[in-house]
């Protein structure tokens, strides 16, 4: 068991390192030196010597030495300096993270609730048209552009119904629409996998055996089917956590909120590679960590995997 855990942790670290290296290489390939673009502007009136000093400050030396020092920096929590504002990247991240964390965690909870509600209602409904209608909801959710959904929600709830003020309003009021915008697309894959898993479990031969014991429909669904269907759903739910960071880019832009997504957008606009690198590595780290946790949880939820692990 511990062996398995250690090897999984090693693999996770390897993937994270590779993600860091790949994004580092990609972002260094940048045509046109982003530092030059920014500081060569004649209006700033910097001399070539000053530019060279700035470059040294941003540690632009030999490529390999650069890479090693950046990697060492990431390992010790020093993420370099933003090209855009000159502030340490750590500071900018620390500023942006709490806002996004609040938004993302609320959205994730809501997404899981929506998904579970859809999948359970679909599998419990006896009429086939109702079931079909419920099951097509996730495909609709997944087809809606998040930015458009956000705009639509603002239009309906802020401008038409005037339930949520456009500017001002309480913390909660400001959070409702962005959370909904972020949650809807993420709930779709979870609902789809859960519904499919429930179908799959219903087709297992042990279900009629439970029914033959005299169990009610709800008993079968809750105590057996749901319990078995959780396993594949957990994997997908874990995968979507990484998507939350990407989704926050759109959501925060639409609602004009500060946060990680907004920071990312600014970094792309300013070709601020250190910030972008930090954001990508952060997203990869969240993804890798969550997959690791899911992997560790699996044998606890499915006794068959205990032996395999």
């Amino acid at each position: 068991m511990t062996r398995h855990l250690l090897s999984r942790a090693g693999q996770a670290a390897l993937v994270l390192w590779a993600a860091f290296t790949a994004s580092y290489v990609l972002l260094q390939l940048l045509p046109g030196d982003s530092i030059l673009i920014k500081f060569q502007n004649p209006e700033l009136g910097l001399s070539p010597q000053q530019i060279a000093e700035i470059r040294a400050h941003y540690a632009a030396g030999s490529p390999l030495a650069d890479y090693v020092s950046t990697l060492a920096g990431f390992l010790t929590g020093r993420l370099g300096y933003s090209i855009d504002t000159g502030a340490p990247v750590v500071e900018r991240l620390a500023e942006a993270l709490p806002e996004t964390a609040r938004l993302a965690s609320a959205a994730f909870l809501l997404a899981v609730l929506i998904a579970v509600a859809i999948a359970f209602a679909a599998s419990y409904s006896r009429t086939s048209w109702l079931r079909g209608a419920l099951l097509s909801v996730p495909s609709l959710f997944i087809s809606v552009p998040a930015f458009w959904l956000g705009i639509l929600l603002i239009q309906i709830f802020s401008f038409r119904l005037k339930l949520v003020p456009v500017i001002g309003g309480s913390e909660l009021q400001q959070l409702v629409l962005p959370v909904l915008t972020l949650a809807v697309p993420i709930s779709a894959p979870i609902a789809q996998v859960l519904a499919r898993a429930i179908d799959h479990v219903y087709a297992q031969p042990f279900v009629p055996v439970v029914e033959a014991k005299g169990a009610t429909r709800w008993w079968v669904l809750w105590r057996h089917v749901a319990r078995n269907a959780v396993l594949p759903t957990l994997t997908v739910a874990g995968l979507t956590l990484g998507e939350l960071i990407a989704g926050s880019v759109v959501t925060e832009t639409v609602f004009g909120r500060a946060g990680l997504g907004r920071l990312t957008e600014q970094a792309v606009n300013a070709q601020d590679t250190p910030v972008m690198l930090a954001v990508v590595v952060l997203a990869a780290a969240v993804f890798v960590l969550v997959s690791l946790i899911v992997d560790v949880l699996f044998p606890i939820l499915d006794p068959r995997l205990k032996a395999a692990a």
Partner: peptide, 28 residues
């Protein structure tokens, strides 16, 4: 109805199924 049959299933009529490999819930 299903509801009425439940009182008979298991209590007055038992079932031994076909495929022992998959006829028990794997996580219980």
């Amino acid at each position: 109805s299903d509801r009425r049959l439940r009182s008979v299933r298991g209590a007055r009529i038992g079932l031994v199924p076909q495929d022992p490999a998959n006829s028990l819930d794997p996580v219980k």
